[in-house]
Every structure is written in C-alpha cells, then in structure tokens.
Computed example of a mutant assay.
Amino acid sequence: MRGIPTAPLFLGLAGVIPFIWGALTYLNDDLHSWGTQMFGSRFVGPYVQLFYGSVILSFMSGVLWGYATKTSGGKAATCYVLSVLPALWAFVKTGGGPVSAGINLMYGFAGVLVLDAIFAYWQLTPTWWLRLRVTLTAIVLACLAVGVYL
C-alpha cells in the first residue's frame, strides 16, 4: 500500500468493515445473534452488506463525478455518463432477494473497478487511486461472495 496517503488508506479500510462484519456474522451464528441483539437484524449477515453496498456504489458514483470535473468537452460528457452508472446499477439491480442482490452488487463493484481503471488511464485520478481501489474491491468481493456462495 506504498504511496497511498494515510487518510484515504485508513478511511478506505474502515469503509470495508461493514462488508467484513456482514461476512463474519453470516458465518458465525453466535456472532450473528450477538449482532442482532446489539444492533438489530438490519446490521448483520447479508442485510448489512446489501444495504451498505448500495450506498457505497452510489458514493462511488459521486467520486467518479468529481474526477469527471477534471476534463472538458466530449470526454467530460463521457465521464459524467460513466460516473452515474454505479448509482443507477445499485438502484435497479439490488432487489429480488439476498442472493441475486449480492451477485448484482458483486458485478457492480467489479464494474466500478473497471471505471476506476478507465479514469486512471485518462489521468483523472491520483496516481495511487487504482492500487487502493483494487485492494478494497478484492475485500468487498470476497465478503459479498460469502453471502452469495455459502
């Protein structure tokens, strides 16, 4: 994680805690019961992952929108269109039950990583951005896979 500023690194890692927590409470019944008692049923298992995942996909749209402001003309228009796709994906594709929503979130996060790579290729992101996003996306996909495939 060399070269990634401390604040984005720690905030990014903190941002995956709900995904990790969701996977752990999915895998451990005692932790699930404790979490339900302490925080409520929305904050354990796949439920926390799905709701939070939708929020984060929408947040990533905002991040990409910010990067789109660094360009102009036709490229700016393309970037603005691309930047709204994660939020639209989350809105349209996260219904229909926890497994299908989890699969669709996995596709959404993989898609955001592709958009991150495009924006990085166009030199609209900080040089460390893609390294951070690959790491965070790998963690998110692994955690979502727990709810989808186990």
Rank of each mutant, 00 (worst) to 15 (best):
G62P: 05
M1C: 10
D116F: 12
V44E: 06
V48A: 06
T69V: 01
N104C: 08
L136K: 12
V134W: 12
K75W: 14
W128N: 08
L85M: 11
G15I: 09
L141S: 08
L27C: 01
M106Q: 12
T78M: 15
G108S: 04
P46T: 15
P46H: 13
L13P: 00
T125N: 13
M38T: 09
V134S: 15
D30Q: 05
I139G: 10
A138T: 02
N28I: 03
A14N: 04
S54E: 04
G96C: 02
R131A: 08
R131E: 14
V55I: 05
R131F: 11
L88N: 02
I17A: 13
W65N: 09
P126E: 14
A117S: 07
L124N: 10
T71S: 11
R42F: 13
A117R: 02
A76N: 14
F10C: 15
V44D: 04
A117G: 06
D116P: 03
K93A: 06
S83V: 01
S83M: 04
R131W: 07
L64A: 04
L24P: 00
D29L: 04
Y121I: 07
L64T: 00
W128Y: 13
A145L: 05
L57A: 03
L144I: 02
V81T: 11
V140P: 04
V114Q: 09
T78H: 07
D116Q: 06
A76R: 15
A23V: 03
T71G: 08
K75Y: 11
T36P: 02
R133M: 07
V148P: 00
F39N: 13
R2Q: 15
G102E: 12
W34D: 06
P98E: 15
K70I: 11
